[in-house]
Design a protein around this nucleic acid. Structure first.
Lengths: 206, 206
DNA sequence: CAAAGAGCTGAGTTATTGCTCACAATACTG
DNA sequence: CAGTATTGTGAGCAATAACTCAGCTCTTTG
């Protein structure tokens, strides 16, 4: 492994469609390879092989291995970002309906490739910059949920911010677990329990 | 990195106290090094250095790097296992008290070295055997909690097994998160919310 | 106290992997 | 179609890290 901090030369920017396709093939292959082998064992040569591309080509579009993972991560985050329209859409209905929508949202976010997400979050040591992006995304999401809860009449909790944080994290990790586990519990059943837990919590029953 | 599956020669078993001490020093150093550098960058040479032991000695007691982590993991699990006495001790009291005890237990389990636990669980790719041990431990724990809930009069949930699973996982991961995050939320506050959530869920209020 | 064995050493071997670079192939342009 | 720019190739370099082994020191034992 070469020294980590070396001057990273600027990469060529694709000008022809061919090049753009190559880039995409590399990313697709990387997703597959990381999923199958994990981050450490998902070598750049393996990725290149899988993409039917030479290792040299790979390094023409990505300055290093981490950059590939970073791009996958950024794309995932972008896909998962709520638009304001989505947010409004969640407002009406009973508390349970709202919570269920939240859970469904988390499930959708994991649908593509739960294994890959796990690897991205857990296995690879991401750059500080990327971690910051994820952090910001998380904070924004907690904020959205907090606002959502604030607008709902049935919510009775002490600290709304903390409740939002607790909920987002709990829903996220539980979904993550059920989706990532091959021999998983049926999602529907688990979803019901999760929804029940969160709903009862928010309702603040004594 | 040498090929993963090679004949692993039997290691020397310590016969003198001196040897036992060396083994312990290696394990202690490994815990420190893994915590500070992570698993991948926590090299065997670094561990040996930190333990003031030659790399050769290290390999006299552990067949490979993973075995070191495995031993740390097994020890952690053993420490965290409930005895029957512990179990009985948890029975009496209000539901909230019981839940709080559960949460406290998780906190205690993370107290030693939350970073290390994170590394063990997330970063390293553990052997199937070790994963099975962890799995068995998890199942046993869920079983213990299920029995605990079954004995409590205030618990009203549909599927007790699933409830136990949901609770154990939720308490575990939330605790894990708060403990591992350096700029963490005050544990007490978070604990209260977590306890509230789980308690309200179990009480099954409508 | 001397022989035997247990424990310890660390330079060196083996293997892997991220990544470069000199060159070849392909696409664009006038 | 010649000349230029872009894209693609893959052997091999350099770095790194897991692990070995020949020979040493320390402990035990008779």
């Amino acid at each position: 492994m070469p020294s980590a901090d070396r001057r990273i030369p600027a990469r060529r920017k694709p000008r022809q469609v061919r090049a753009e396709l190559t880039r995409e093939r590399i990313l697709t292959a990387a997703a597959h390879v990381f999923t199958e082998y994990g981050y450490a064992a998902g070598t750049t040569n393996r990725i290149a092989d899988h993409a039917h591309v030479s290792i040299g080509s790979l390094y023409q579009y990505f300055p290093n291995k981490e950059a590939i993972l970073a791009e996958l991560m950024v794309r995932h985050i972008d896909r998962g970002m709520w638009t304001e329209a989505d947010e409004l859409e969640l407002t009406p209905g009973s508390l349970e309906t709202t919570v269920r929508a939240l859970v469904r949202d988390a499930v959708d976010n994991h649908r593509d490739d739960p294994q890959l997400l796990r690897i991205m979050l857990e296995e690879a040591s991401l750059s500080q910059e990327l971690l910051d992006t994820i952090e910001r995304h998380g904070k924004k999401r907690v904020g959205q949920v907090r606002d959502l809860l604030a607008r709902h009449p049935d919510v009775h909790v002490g600290d709304l911010g903390m409740a939002a944080e607790l909920i987002v994290f709990t829903v996220e990790t539980n979904t993550h677990k059920v989706m990532a586990d091959p021999r998983a519990i049926p999602i529907e059943t688990f979803e019901d329990e999760l929804v029940a837990m969160v709903t009862r919590y928010l309702r603040g029953d004594r």
